[in-house]
Design a binder for these strands. Structure first.
Lengths: 214, 214
DNA sequence: CCCGTTTCTCAACACCCTGTTGACTCGTTC
DNA sequence: GAACGAGTCAACAGGGTGTTGAGAAACGGG
């Protein structure tokens, strides 16, 4: 996915290996530094020195700092795709257990990559490609959730309500923002220990609870 | 509020007026430029030239580009405080109408200041003071919502559920993120025409709908 | 009316960061 | 062993930030 920015050197992989080592060193350095400081505080020079090369050499491997991040993110997205969580497969164990599993998995993958996701949000504000990657992942996820919601409605488990895709978008927006706040310690946020259950409760009520008559 | 960053010249206001004019010109320029381009694309020089002064002179009035934004945001926050929307005063017209009013007002003030809020989100990623301002506003808002929810529960209109403050945080997170996506045209988002009703539906279900037994 | 003080202004500077150029090294290949 | 491509970096060009120090311009008090 997203071949574009990061690769001024498409055919290089076939040649001798030391180049790949350098590329990996840059990626590893980026991940290490991101664990300690925000993206904006990391310079190309930091990445280059961390990988044991000079700045111009960095540009042989990546077009920019953002391109490094994009490569890391592509990797994460690929992993997530491989893990293959799919809300549309949920109803085995009843709604509560099913959706809890969905939200927990979302939570875990967020949690496991705090630093990266933080950087993702930071870069999203200024970089189009990164914003688009986010949009693609988001669209994919909400689409699957919408399918699951429609399935529940079709079999009579859930009552009718707003279009399933809208509901999925809103609930996922909530998860995204709330988890980000919780992990980044931004402002006031739900504590990490209870956040999955709290989110779950809202999901269940939004999907299964009827709206009050008035 | 937030006197800090923007004012290397505390006592100046008492003197002759042309200084204030310049300061206002900078603020107006910032607002004008933000309507067309993201914060990151605007340089201090752009702001200075737009206000008809040189870059060093800019620094006489503001400590940085972010300080200008912070001043604009303080202004918006003050206006919002003055308008005095307070969810804890809602129950006059029944839940649906009451909460619709709350969400609509939130939506309108977001909408009226798109550009500024966009910049706010952008700067929040890198600037501590701006992040803290956001956190303060957010905390204040959620606190009021929590009071309203507790009131509804106390008079038996709403069933028990997760702690009201948690619920308020989650629902506000949803609003914030979903409205931002809708206005910024980020990724997939609920269309602007239906977003208030969609949000309202989730709020009502989350607050008034019981959770399914399982 | 002049003189000190305060406000205000900016050319010039120091610095940091990004991205590019062009020359150089060094295996590989034919 | 010449030609090639991958890899490397000193040096440069350019744009941004924030500071310094030397003034101009307005006042206010004697």
């Amino acid at each position: 996915m997203t071949p574009a920015t990061g690769e001024p050197s498409r055919g290089r992989r076939t040649a001798r290996p030391s180049g790949d080592d350098r590329e990996l060193a840059i990626l590893a350095t980026a991940e290490r530094l991101l664990a300690e400081q925000p993206l904006s505080a990391i310079s190309v020079d930091d990445l280059a020195r961390g990988a044991g090369i000079s700045r111009p050499t960095f540009y042989f491997y990546f077009a920019s700092k953002d391109a490094v991040l994009l490569t890391l993110l592509d990797r994460v997205v690929a992993e997530a795709d491989a893990a293959g969580l799919d809300p549309s497969l949920l109803p085995a164990a009843g709604p509560r257990a099913g959706w809890r599993h969905v939200i927990t998995t979302y939570y875990e993958s967020f949690r496991a990559r705090r630093a990266l996701i933080r950087a993702w949000a930071e870069a999203r504000a200024t970089n189009t490609e990164i914003r688009e990657l986010w949009a693609r992942v988001f669209a994919d996820w909400t689409q699957r959730c919408a399918v699951a919601i429609d399935a529940e409605r079709a079999r009579g488990t859930a009552p009718p309500g707003p279009p399933a895709l809208e509901l999925a978008i809103l609930l996922t927006s909530m998860n995204e923002r709330a988890l980000y706040a919780t992990f980044s310690g931004d402002g006031p946020a739900v504590e990490e220990t209870g956040i999955v259950e709290a989110l779950l409760e809202v999901w269940l009520r939004a999907i299964y609870g009827a709206s009050p008559v008035d």
